[in-house]
Simulated scan of single mutants.
Amino acid sequence: MTDPTTFDPAQVFRVFAMRPVATTDFDQVVVNAPGDDLRCVFLWGQDCYNCNLFKQAALLHQQALRDLGLTWFQADVYADEPLGRRFGLHGVPTFVLYRGGKRLGRITGWPGLPQFVAAIRRQQGP
């Protein structure tokens, strides 16, 4: 459990082993990589208030997110604007889901833990 008085937004990357991706390697690392795991790409921005809300919630509810069995990736689209344009982003955070080379959908904004979990469960199927 994370102590909210010592919140460090960057912790989320380490805690969930979020692999950094960029425009230059996105297809190779996320889309075309072998495997049938459900991949979640967390697109965020430096000093983004709503991104930090997700990061804090993720750190406070680590087990609930781990139980989803996602393979996590992350990219700061403020620093990598072409990646943000690729997805036509109008805001962050945005979570883009892939499996087996196919884009399954996306979650725009941080809807809160229950809604996020429900959306992921729908992609996982029965």
Rank of each mutant, 00 (worst) to 15 (best):
F42P: 00
D47T: 14
L83P: 00
W72I: 00
L38D: 11
A75H: 08
M18R: 01
L70F: 00
Q62F: 09
Q62R: 15
A58W: 05
K55L: 04
W44S: 09
R85M: 12
D37G: 08
L59K: 11
C51V: 06
L83C: 07
V31E: 12
L60K: 06
D36G: 13
A64Q: 14
R19P: 04
D25A: 05
D37R: 03
A75P: 01
A75S: 08
Q56I: 00
D25M: 07
F73T: 03
T23W: 13
Y49V: 14
R39K: 15
C48R: 00
A64D: 15
H61I: 05
Q28H: 14
R66Q: 14
R85L: 13
H90Y: 08
K55M: 14
F54N: 00
L60V: 09
T71L: 08
V77M: 00
G91M: 11
A22V: 12
H90E: 04
Q63G: 12
P82Q: 09
P20Q: 09
F54M: 03
Q63M: 07
L83S: 02
A79F: 03
V77E: 04
H90G: 09
Q56G: 09
R66G: 11
G91A: 11
G45P: 05
Q62L: 00
L59G: 08
R39V: 10
Q28V: 13
P82L: 09
W72A: 01
L65H: 02
L38V: 08
P34W: 14
C40Y: 08
R66V: 12
T23L: 02
R19D: 10
K55A: 15
G84I: 06
Q56C: 06
V77I: 10
R19G: 03
V41M: 04
L83D: 05
A33W: 13
G91K: 08
V31W: 00
F26T: 02
R19E: 15
A79G: 10
F54G: 02
D37V: 07
A57Y: 11
D47G: 14
D25Y: 09
A58C: 11
V29I: 12
A58H: 08
G69N: 02
F42N: 01
F26L: 02
L83G: 03
N32F: 11
L43K: 00
C48T: 02
H61M: 07
G88A: 11
Y49M: 14
L65E: 08
A57P: 07
T23V: 06
Y78F: 10
T24K: 07
F42H: 06
L59C: 10
G88W: 13
Y49P: 05
R66M: 14
N32T: 13
D36Q: 15
V41Q: 01
P34C: 07
P20W: 01
C40T: 01
